[in-house]
Design a binder for these strands. Structure first.
Length: 494
DNA sequence: ATGTTAATAT
DNA sequence: GATATTAACA
């Protein structure tokens, strides 16, 4: 007997879950608790049913993830029209999800696999909500499977074992209803750390099995690792882009007194690439009258923002961060000589990595004489400038580079007039004089834009001279994703 | 049997 | 929409 004698019998429970197996197991367990159970594999149908047959249900248990209707949506609808306690249920126990459930009015949140002990007590939700409850009406519960056929169901726990696809439910299966589906592996940062460790030991070309063996995490299958490795590699690809292609290198040279302005030079790329196309850095500048930015630019910015958000999601950041450290190690492992840090040895870095690099610089871990800055999206000139002013670096080189494939948004910058004072590169990006900025700009963003060039078209070295004193430019936008996106929030129309 | 990639589920 | 899982294929 699953319940004691004085247990409130007969609670009418509606269970909604798209997974028929879950449904059956839940049903069985609920029957064991002497509840009357109605199952439904489809949220919309469940909703229809609940509405049409009001007063025939006391409680709803709904899955969160369902193809036809989000469990939260169902929860919302029920809360709106019916006054039923709803229990959410999901394999995902993420705090934010649970919170979402509670804030949307769920009275409980069950984590899959659901244990029968948890189900025994759910009647209390009904009592709590209604104040009292009469458990002795003789409404029969029904099953409504996805074929819209109504099937009478007895409150004993047999007879319901053949249904869709003849799913056989043995008692053994019920027993491991506790492990209702093996728990999904959640790649916590801790777990991921171990993963990255293993990969670093083995090299990036390693295989899932060896990683698994090194990690020594009980219950972690080869498939789990393979899957994660797949994601990891994809991430790396996005991060490093076209590492093999040769890139132009932009370098910034402070003026004599280090106070105002300097020169930016673009040199042709260092390493010879095997692939055909070449990517050059472009410098797009827009300034003060941001509210007068033309449509195309705004659209491009919005797109860029979306891209940034995509690329630097919470989980992704961890990954990028780890890779960033790798890059740093690689970058500085070989010593601090000028040759080592000159263009050919440069790693491409994202702005996140740039942050890391700057951290190291400020902690004195990185060489100061010739500090190499590299950024995927934007280069923070204010840092360069302050470093120069501090006299710490005589020669700061910035390698601008491009991820590939870069979102089309950036290409817009070369095609669209930029702001109310359009400052467009002349044809090719290889020659763009920042002195064309008149004194009216007070902000500037340097944006590398993709510009495909034939090998022979690699830009000739050109000098970009910063006007003195910096054409009135008083601040530069820091490229960190957060800053950048809040900057965009400011200038983009809601 | 194992690794990779693509599709599918949550 | 991101992630983990599964299926399919090499």
């Amino acid at each position: 007997m699953a319940v004691s004698e004085d247990f409130p019998v007969g609670l009418r429970v509606m269970v909604v879950d798209d997974d028929p197996v879950c449904l059956l197991i839940l049903q069985r367990m609920l029957h064991q608790c002497r509840y009357r159970v109605t199952t439904c594999s489809c949220a919309t149908q469940a909703y229809t049913m609940l509405r049409e047959r009001q007063d025939t249900f006391d409680l709803v248990i709904s899955d969160v993830y369902m193809p036809d209707m989000d469990g939260f949506r169902l929860l919302e609808l029920i809360g709106l029209e019916l006054d039923l306690p709803v229990i959410m249920m999901s394999a995902n126990g993420e705090t934010s999800l649970v919170m979402k459930g509670i804030t949307h009015g769920a009275c409980d949140y069950l984590l899959k696999p659901v244990r029968i002990e948890e189900l025994r007590n759910i009647w209390q939700h009904v009592v709590r909500k209604k104040g009292t409850f009469d458990f002795n009406r003789d409404n029969c519960s029904i099953d409504w499977d996805s074929n819209k056929t109504l099937v009478e169901v007895q409150s004993e726990d047999h007879g319901s074992r053949k249904r869709k696809g003849n799913i056989e439910l043995s008692d053994a299966m019920i027993e491991d209803a506790n492990s209702l589906k093996k728990a999904r592996v959640v790649w916590s940062s801790e777990l991921h750390k171990k993963f990255v460790n293993a990969v670093n030991q083995l090299g990036i070309d390693t295989v899932p099995k060896s990683i698994m063996e090194i990690m020594r995490i009980q219950g972690l299958t080869r498939e789990n690792v393979a899957s994660h490795l797949q994601k990891y590699r994809l991430g790396l690809k996005r991060l490093c882009g076209i590492r093999v292609e040769r890139l132009p290198v932009a370098s910034f040279q402070a003026s004599e007194n280090g106070q105002c302005g300097g020169k930016m030079q673009i040199q042709s790329g260092g390493s010879v690439s095997a692939s055909g196309s070449n990517v050059s850095s472009n410098v797009g500048v827009f300034g003060r009258s941001l509210n007068q930015l033309d449509r195309g630019t705004l659209a491009a910015l919005a797109q860029l923002q979306a891209t940034q958000q995509r690329q630097f999601g919470v989980n992704e950041a961890q990954q990028l961060g780890d890779s960033g450290k790798l890059c740093l190690e690689h970058l500085f492992a070989g010593g601090t000589s000028q040759e080592e840090t000159s263009s050919s040895g440069l790693q491409r870095m994202s702005s996140l990595e740039l942050d890391l690099l700057m951290q190291q610089v400020h902690q004195g871990m990185a060489p100061r004489q010739q500090q190499v800055l590299a950024s995927g999206d934007l280069v923070d000139l204010s840092i360069v400038k302050s470093e120069v002013e501090a006299g710490g670096c005589e020669n700061m080189a910035m390698q601008s580079h491009q991820r590939d494939p870069m979102p089309n948004s950036l290409q817009h910058f070369t095609e669209q007039p930029l702001g109310s004072h359009p400052v467009e590169p002349e044809g090719d990006v290889s020659a763009f004089d920042l002195s064309r900025l008149d004194g009216s700009f007070d902000e500037a963003i340097l944006l590398p834009s993709p510009c495909r060039l034939a090998d022979s078209d690699c830009p000739e070295p050109g000098i970009f001279t910063f006007p003195d004193p910096c054409a009135g430019i008083s601040s530069f936008i820091h490229p960190s994703p957060h800053d950048f996106s809040s900057f965009l929030d400011e200038i983009l129309p809601p």
